[in-house]
Amino acid sequence: MILECRNLTKTYRGKKAVADLSLSLENGKIYGLLGENGSGKTTLMKMIAGLVKPAEGEILYHGHPLEYRDKAHIAYMSTEPFYYDYMKVSDVGRYYEDFFEDFDRKYFQDLIGKFGLEEGMKAKDMSTGMSAKLKIAATLARKSELCMLDEPLNGVDYKAREEIIALILEEADDKRTFLLSTHLIDEIESFVEKAFFIKSGELIKGMDLEAERMASGRSLTDVYMDIM
């Protein structure tokens, strides 16, 4: 087990963003985090990334309480862009290289090429699809054990979406674990192994996709429609 959340709670202005939430992630799997806007998905990811401190509960990373050092192995991609308009693709690479020890510059350049981006392109001139790809490339070029991507497919055109998914599938080997949040359930149906359904900060259900299909013939979409 790479990560375990026990009874996590986070309150913002008296309102519970995450409430008594427990879940665990095994090494080398792709997980989906599903729920409406404001259901607590982002807060949960930020807590795991060490960006937000839980009010209650604990997070165990490889069995020990999450500590500063672990941050180096956990990548989190937020929904907001992390770079400035004036930056070129190459600046984003340098910026990341300064920030993260595990950032692999050469690999970043490979990914950029694969995605059809160029080092000289400016962030402000990019389409939504291009900047989504840039964000993913920068995040995955950190060879982190745990990669959390918050809405990696949102607002991205079909072709870029397929490219992003292909890259995730390539990268998600037995050494890397992925946690993806998305609204596009159909898009992740064929490759997510387990989905967590979050509603009002609470974990409603964990679903093992292939086992559910085998047992009840229900898809991720079917279950989502039923319980959310």
Binding site: L169, D174, S190, F191
Partner: peptide, 10 residues
């Protein structure tokens, strides 16, 4: 995995 849009465990 990439060809069939499945994860590598599948």
């Amino acid at each position: 995995a990439v060809l069939y849009k499945v994860n590598q465990n599948t």
